[in-house]
Every structure is written in C-alpha cells, then in structure tokens.
Design a protein around this nucleic acid. Structure first.
Lengths: 209, 209, 209, 209
DNA sequence: CATGAATGAGATTTCATTCAT
DNA sequence: GATGAATGAAATCTCATTCAT
C-alpha cells in the first residue's frame, strides 16, 4: 500500500531540491541567478547529485516551479469543488491568492505561467512549456470553466461564452492581484482589502450580465 | 544648473545602444541573456565605449527598456489628450496595445514594469525602480487618471474612487492582453477581436457603475 | 605456490568487461574517453562491481587491451609454429594483420604497445608497462626470433644478428600496415594488396641478405 | 613592411601558447591530460585569453601540434632540397630524426600524424585532420617523392612506382625509429647507431632494386 | 573619447570512486 | 559478492569589466 498515486511521488532528493528552489524564489531570490550549488547546499545534498536526477540547471528550476504551481492548482481545484455558493468560492479564491501572495514571487510566477507571459528566462520558459504540454494541462482552464458553470447554474451570471467568462475571470483576478502588489510595495492604497474584494466581485458579475 | 532639460536627448551612441537592446528584446531574446558585446556589436561601437556612458550592463538594459517604455507612455498620453470620446479613446488604447504587441516581448515588459512585476532579474529590476523613482514617474497613473476624468465628465462612468478606477482599467486592459497572448500563441479563440474589444469595454463601464 | 597457472582464466564478469572495452575500441571510441559506466553498462554489471576486480579505471582498460593483445600474439605464435615455409608464414602474418585490421583501432593499439609508443594516456601506458613487465613478456620478440630462425634454416635469409632481423621484420610489417591504413582512409593506392605483399616480402628478404 | 609573409605569423600570444603546448609534450606530459590552465600559466597569460584565439581546448592543442609538425616538415624539406647525394641526404634525415627524437614525444606524434595513426584522442585527431585538409597537405608526400626522384636520377634505385617507393621509405624510417625507441627505453641493443643507419640504408636501397 | 585585447572570478557539468544496503 | 545512489574534486568555458593605447 505504499504508493497508490499513478504519477508516483518524486524521489526524496528531488523533493528536497524542489523545496530549496521554491524557498529561494519565495525569499525573493532572482530566479535567473539561482546557482546549482545554492540549490544543492540548501537541499543538503552533493552538487553532483543534482545531475543524477536532472540534466541541466534549467530543468531543475522549471520542474520545481511547475511542481509548486501544480500544488497551487490543486488547492484552487479543491476550493472550486467544495461546497459553497459561487460568491463564497470567489471570495475564497481571492483569499487563497492573498495568502499565497505573501510568498512573494511565487504568485507572480503562477500568474505569468498561467497567462503565458514571457519574462522568465527564455530557456527556462521553454522548459516550462515543454512540461506543461506533456501533461496536456488545460487543468487551469477546466477549473475556471467548472467554477463558471456553477455561476450560471445559480443564475448569478448570464453570459455563457466560455471565452468571455475566462476573460472576465482573469480580469478581476488580476485587478485584485494589482491591489496586492501595491500593498506589497508599500503603496498603501486608500482601500481596505474587503472593499477591494467587494468591488472586484461586483465588477466580475456585472461584466458577465 | 547642470541639467536643465530634464530629458535632454541622449548622445547618439547611447541611442544606438538603446535601439540595439530594444531590437533584441523584440526579436525574442531572453533579456537576462543579452551580453554587453551583443549590444555594442549591434550598435556598431566598441565594447569599451559602453562603459563611457553606463557603469554596468544592468544599467544599459534598464535604461534602454525604460526609454522604450517612456516612448510608449507618451503615445498613450497623446491618445488620451487628443480629441475624441471616452469610448473612442478606450478603443484606440486597445488598438495601440494590439499594434505594440506584435513586437512581442516589449509589451510584456511594459506591463510588467508598470504593474511592478518582478520576474526581471532582480538587479535589473532594481535599476528600473531606481530610475522610475528618479523621475518620480507616476506618469502612467496620471495618464489613467486623466482618462478616467473624461469618463466621469461624459457621464459614462460614475465611480469616482481613483483606486477602483485604476483597478477596473488594469483589469480590462489585462483581460484584452490575455486575448492577444492567446492569439499570439496560436490558440485561436472563438472570438473576433471586435467582440473582444466590445466585451472589454462593456465590462469596464459596467464595473464602474 | 600461490599462483601456479600463470594465466588462469579471468572470472566471467572480468571477461565481460574486457569484451566491452575491446568492442568499444574496435568501434572507434577514443580510449581516453571511455567511462567506467560505459564499460559496466555494456558488460551488463553494476558500476561498483568493477571495483571488486580492479582498483582503477586505467587498470581495467589496460588489462582489457593487454588481454586482447595477448590473444593476437597467441594467434601469431600459432602461425609461426604451424607447418609451412618461411614465405608462406610471412604471407599468413600479413593476412592476419589485414583481417585484424578491420577492427580498426585495435591493431593500432597493438602496434603502438608493441613498439612502445606513448600516445596512450600516460597513466594508462604505465599500467600497460607494469603488466608487461610482470609477465616478463618478451613473447613477441620470441615469436619473431623463432620465425627468423626458420628463415635462416631454410637459407632464405643470411643475416644472423637478431637485432637487425627484428628491425627488418618491423620495417616491413609497418610498411604493409601503412598500406592498410591508407586503404582504410579511402586513399586507394594504385597497388593491389597482392602486389603490396609481394613487394614487402621481397624487401624483407633482400634487406637481410 | 611589417608583415610580408602570406600566411601572416600567428599573434604573439598564440605563439606563446603553441610553445607552451610543445614544451609540455616534449617534457613527456600526457597530451590528453594537458589542461587549459597549464597552457595559459606556462604562456604567462590569462586563462580567458586562450578563448580569444581558440574556441576549445582541443583546437589549441591540435593547432600547436600541427604548427610544430609544420616546422619539422620544413626542416625535412630543406634537407631534401639542399645539395648532397642521395645517400648523404638519407643519412641527414636519420640524423634529424635522432635529434628530434630527444624531444621525446613530439617525434612520436609526428610519425603518428603522418601515418594517420589514431591514438590521439579522437576529437583531437579530428581537429588535426580538419586542419590538414585545409592546407591540402600532401606536403610530406611531396618531400618524399622529390627525394626519391633524386635516387632514381642518381641511378641508386630502379623502382619507379611511387607507392612502393613510399612504402620502402616509411619502412626503413620506422625501422630506424624502432631502434631509437628502444635506446630511449634503455634496452641497449647490441648495435651501434652507425650500424643501424648503415643497415637501414642498405635495406632501403635493396628493397627498391 | 573610443577601443578591444586581456583578464579571472565564477558557473555548469562530468565522472571516478566509495560505501551502505 | 554485487549494486548503484551519492559525492565532490576538477575541468572547461563565459563574459562583465578594465585599461593601455
């Protein structure tokens, strides 16, 4: 009964490396400046060991980030599948973003990877794309679509075009993120978090009716 | 009385270097992998010359990008200040984005720098921040605020809180950008550009009423 | 009384490793670039196992090569000891060389090791030397001397100084080898193999009369 | 009037590097173990400088060896073109070999490269071949052919087939080399150098009549 | 001012060897 | 005995920066 999951968890040393990378990213290190020796030192393993599991530095980092993203996606998926009204879930999503956002950079990476933005080192980006295609992951899209169906079912939103739904969702999520970024940067906006959430939810619903 | 003109045109060699950097970025080079020698070679000047005008590679690239962003900001400013209705201007802004977007990466950089996103190499980022503070440039924010005032004046939008206005603006601009990105990536969405613009404008106005 | 058989057959795993090394050499691998893992993988054994039988990579390779050379020497010895005239045997030696030569590199190694040439990695070379001394093997020289005695006995050659005999033998063997090398390299010389053999035998006999 | 020679001498730093490589080879270093840092340290230049002139370590070494070989070829060419009888020149060639041979390894390399033997690291070998083709160098062959013509003209040798001539020449040169090698290795053969030369010349002439 | 040859710190990657299982 | 995961010393190569011309 050791391992039931089909995608068998990565070996322990790999997990240690993933963890090391994520930690550093969250601590605000420049992804493009992370050294293999940084990773292995933090993971408490030998430098050569990294190359037993990966064939290049870029691969290590890309895999680590995607592993992290994967986890966050699963959390979002859970939120969407749990019980609760459309509105409540929207609130929970924003809350999760807020929480995750504390781990500074990771969230940015999440957004960028999701929206396909390119500022990650080109080679690293390629690595990420490669892996994502492997998994055929429209996962994120599926989560959003599932969520939107509930909104329609509850009669909260009328618009049924999934493209427009997604645009609207992305729009408000990012709007909220921009609020978080500014808070993070110390530009305290004359706006409470609650107000922000309220506004964003309103805009979201209105834009789809 | 050393520097009266706050932005006296940079010397020609500097311009050549800016141009070189921007070209490379637009051609899809990885910003973090651009070499000093790439820049000077493209600019047709000696490698040492770069250090007559800048004190580090990061400085060159940051300045070049900001120079480019500056140009784009001015263009947006012009659009906002020209004659035309609120709606027309919003359309022009989206058109400009579409146009600029063809030069792939630059736009992304613009967005990221504007929204303060962090994936640019930390040191490069610091350079950018430094410069933006130097110029005290709330320029972008000013443009948006100016634009929103017209909306209020025309009675198209009611919401007067500038923070919410900006959030709403950012939200829809990014929503539209997400459409452009996907088109760029070849995922043809079942949605015409016109429809996209229409939807985005609608959402924008509704969210502020 | 520890070791009575001077060459008790090596254990099977060792033979597998020898075979792996020789194969690679014959396939044109660069001897100095053969990795322990290449050898053990080909031999179908664990990497650590190599160190149960040898104490360094150089030792493995040197032993393998010498094992191979040993085999070739035995074959030459057989040729020399079989029935047949001096002339016939000389012909058979050249034929054997031609045959062996198809396995490209090995022959070169043979020549080099025999003539004491040094281009093999210094450490590898030292290993070879050490082993050859161990076995006190003048074997090759013995073969040649034995062969030459027959020539003298048959009255085909007059020169009795063994040094000169060996020089003459080496000279013609190498001359013939140079022909083979060129054929191998695709420089088709306007000279049939038969002619080459004929010439070489003639030169050999004449030089010793 | 600075540089008249068509193939313009290599820059000074390159020469320093060539010299360093050759020195090391002559001192008996293992060619395959020479490090870039060994070369640059000996040449008294910075490590990075090596890569201003070459694009890989192999290139440096291959070029250095060929540069050296080139010099030796020129010397042989001079010997052949000077005044003197066929016999005298043959003697001078052997003398030159003897002299050069003191610089241990270089001579071996010379022989090997000339005869196309393969024990140099495969990649290094490829580099050598590449360069030799560039120069279209049958140079060595030309020298030998030129030399042989004199022998024919003097009536010392009759055989006119250039292939056979070359084989005979190679044969005796190598035979002599084998003598030198053994002397080098301390196996003092009961044979004076003079006797060796005498024998070799005799064999050479006889084999071509 | 302009240049580009020279530099060397530093990053990635390889692989022989060890050793716990 | 056999194994192969783990190791880290060592080697190659890059490139920002300097400085003599």
């Amino acid at each position: 009964m050791e391992e039931i999951k089909c995608s068998s968890a990565p070996p322990q040393k790999v997990l240690l490396m993933y963890q090391a990378v994520i930690e550093m990213v969250e601590e605000g290190f420049d992804v493009n400046k992370i050294k293999v020796s940084d990773i292995t030192a933090r993971a408490g393993i030998g430098k050569g060991t990294a190359y037993e599991y990966f064939s290049s530095k870029e691969e290590i980092i890309a895999d680590a980030i995607l592993y992290d993203v994967q986890g966050k996606r699963e959390q979002l998926s859970r939120i969407v599948k749990e019980d609760g009204s459309f509105r409540e879930k929207f609130g929970k999503i924003l809350d999760y973003m807020t929480e995750v956002f504390r781990e500074k950079e990771t969230f940015c990476l999440l957004v960028r990877i999701s929206t396909g933005s390119y500022e990650i080192s080109e080679s690293l980006h390629r690595e990420c794309e490669k892996r994502q295609q492997d998994k055929g992951c429209r996962v994120m899209e599926d989560i959003v679509e599932c969520f939107m169906r509930q909104g329609v079912a509850e009669g909260v939103i009328k618009e049924r075009n999934p493209e427009l739904q997604k645009m609207a969702f992305v729009a408000q999520v990012i709007a909220f993120a921009s609020l978080l970024v500014r808070r993070e940067k110390g530009e305290v906006p004359p706006l409470s978090m609650e107000q922000g959430k309220e506004f964003v939810y309103g805009a979201f619903v209105k834009s789809l009716n």
